[in-house]
């Protein structure tokens, strides 16, 4: 899809090195203000904990993992990463609107597969990323990017292994992309 689009209709992205410098400065600013880096998967974790706690408070109470994130005086949604992730969404919306990429609902996929295949791959990929981010103490933002930048060995390890595994396994999923 979209392969026939005219050059004039192409999305315009900023220069990746410029984007990288901006992201690096933002990360530095975040560490300077908060003493921690950026994150993303933590917001979904808060959503999971909140959902389970609302449906079955007893169940959440008895599970050590949920229990870690439940507080008596406020909802798990009152969390730094939840507000930051809401910001990620709004920032994406702003940029998308500004650059003309904010369009009707659509699925992006390689012409070699169907939209349905893409959704299955995206769903399974999401499940795996969700599980992996818990074992890894964060995802590509919280562990790999912020961890490495603050010289955490674990963060560096996650960065190398996450991308390394991607390269090792990429061959088997080539059809999904090109």
């Amino acid at each position: 899809m979209n392969t026939e689009e005219k050059p004039a209709g192409r999305p315009k992205y900023i220069n990746p090195y410029f984007g990288g410098v901006l992201l690096g400065l933002l990360l530095l600013l975040t560490m300077y203000i908060t003493g921690r880096g950026l994150g993303a998967s933590g917001a979904v974790k808060s959503a999971v904990v909140t959902t389970v706690d609302n449906i079955s408070p007893m169940h959440a109470e008895h599970n050590v993992y949920y229990h870690k994130f439940i507080s008596d005086n406020h909802s798990p949604m009152f969390n730094w990463l939840v507000f930051e992730s809401l910001g990620i969404f709004l920032g994406g919306l702003l940029s998308g609107a500004l650059y003309g990429r904010l369009k009707k609902l659509r699925i992006e996929y390689s012409p070699k597969i169907s939209g349905k295949t893409r959704l299955w791959a995206a769903g399974i990929g999401g499940i795996l990323f969700g599980i992996g981010s818990q074992f890894g103490r964060g995802c590509s933002s919280g562990a790999a990017l912020s961890g490495t930048a603050s010289f955490s060995f674990g963060g560096f390890l996650v960065m190398m292994l996450l991308f390394g595994t991607g390269y090792v396994l990429a061959y088997f999923f080539k059809k999904l992309w090109i």
Partner: peptide, 30 residues
């Protein structure tokens, strides 16, 4: 283990959590 699982999820899904939020914002169902 977590990184290896995330690596597989990355190749399958094409997003990581942060990037998927921005893609939702511009209307990507995937």
């Amino acid at each position: 283990l977590g990184s290896v699982i995330m690596g597989l999820g990355f190749v399958l899904g094409g997003f990581c959590p942060g990037t998927s939020y921005t893609a939702i914002a511009i209307g990507k169902i995937d």
